[in-house]
C-alpha cells in the first residue's frame, strides 16, 4: 500500500521531467514563427531575406484578390455565370468587332477552342465585390481568355463598404462605350432604313414596269 503511494509520486516526477526535457529541447530548435508585417511573405525569395525558418512564402498560384485585365476581356459573362455567390456584376454594350491582343501585341487565343478570341461587346460595368468573394478560383478556371485572375494581394481592409467593390470600368470608359454602342445602333438602323428604302424603290419600279406592260 505504502509502496504504491511512493511509486505514484515517483511516476508523477519522472513523467513531468520526461515532458519537460522535450520542451527544453525545442528551445534550441529553429524558430518557425513568421513575423508577418516585418517579413515580406509574398514569394519564396522575399521571405528568405529576414526569415530563417522552413516555411515557404506564397506560391505563384496563390488565390488572393481578383483582378481584371480589361484589354483581354471579351465581356462574355462566363465568369459571372460560374460564380456560385454572384460577386461579379457585368454589363455590356455593342462595340466594333475587334480581336483582343496581349502585351506583346499577339492575338489572344481562346483557351478551350484554341481559336482567336473575338470581341463584339464592350464592358460598361465590371464590378467584383471582394466582401462577398470566397476566393474559390472557379471564375479564373472558366475564363476563356485569362482576363480575370487572382493576385497575391491578401490584405483586404478598406475604409468603407463601397471600397470593397472593385470597379474595373471607369465612368468615362462607360460613357465612351455607351456612346459608341448608340452610334453603332444608329448606323445599323440607318443601314436598315436605307435597305428598306431600296427594296421599296425596287418594288415600285417593278410595279411601274408591270403597269407599263399592261
Amino acid at each position: 500500500m505504502m509502496g504504491a503511494y511512493f511509486q505514484n509520486i515517483k511516476n508523477g516526477f519522472t513523467t513531468v521531467f520526461e515532458g519537460m526535457s522535450i520542451t527544453f529541447a525545442t528551445m534550441f530548435v529553429r524558430k518557425e514563427t513568421v513575423q508577418y508585417p516585418e517579413v515580406d511573405i509574398t514569394s519564396n525569395k522575399t521571405i528568405a531575406e529576414k526569415y530563417k525558418g522552413s516555411l515557404m512564402g506564397m506560391p505563384d498560384n496563390y488565390r488572393g484578390v481578383l483582378i481584371l485585365e480589361n484589354g483581354l476581356c471579351t465581356a462574355c459573362q462566363i465568369c459571372q455565370r460560374t460564380c456560385p455567390i454572384d460577386c461579379i456584376a457585368i454589363e455590356n454594350a455593342k462595340c466594333d468587332k475587334t480581336k483582343p491582343t496581349d502585351k506583346d501585341g499577339k492575338p489572344v487565343l481562346n483557351r478551350f477552342t484554341q481559336k482567336e478570341a473575338i470581341k463584339t461587346r464592350a464592358l460598361t460595368r465590371f464590378d467584383i465585390n471582394i466582401a462577398k468573394c470566397m476566393f474559390c478560383g472557379l471564375c479564373e478556371a472558366a475564363c476563356p481568355t485569362g482576363a480575370i485572375h487572382h493576385t497575391k494581394q491578401f490584405e483586404m481592409n478598406r475604409e468603407c463598404q463601397e471600397d470593397l467593390v472593385l470597379r474595373f470600368v471607369s465612368d468615362g470608359e462607360k460613357e465612351i462605350a455607351v456612346k459608341r454602342a448608340e452610334e453603332i445602333e444608329a448606323e445599323a438602323e440607318a443601314k436598315k432604313a436605307a435597305k428598306a428604302e431600296k427594296e421599296k424603290e425596287a418594288k415600285e419600279k417593278e410595279e411601274q414596269e408591270k403597269g407599263a406592260e399592261e
Binding site: L55, P59, N61, Y62, R63, G137, H150
Partner: peptide, 13 residues
C-alpha cells in the same frame, strides 16, 4: 503549417 504550405503550393489556398 508545413502541410498547409504544401497544399498552398498545389492549389493556392
Amino acid at each position: 503549417e508545413h502541410i498547409n504550405d504544401l497544399f498552398e503550393m498545389i492549389c493556392g489556398a
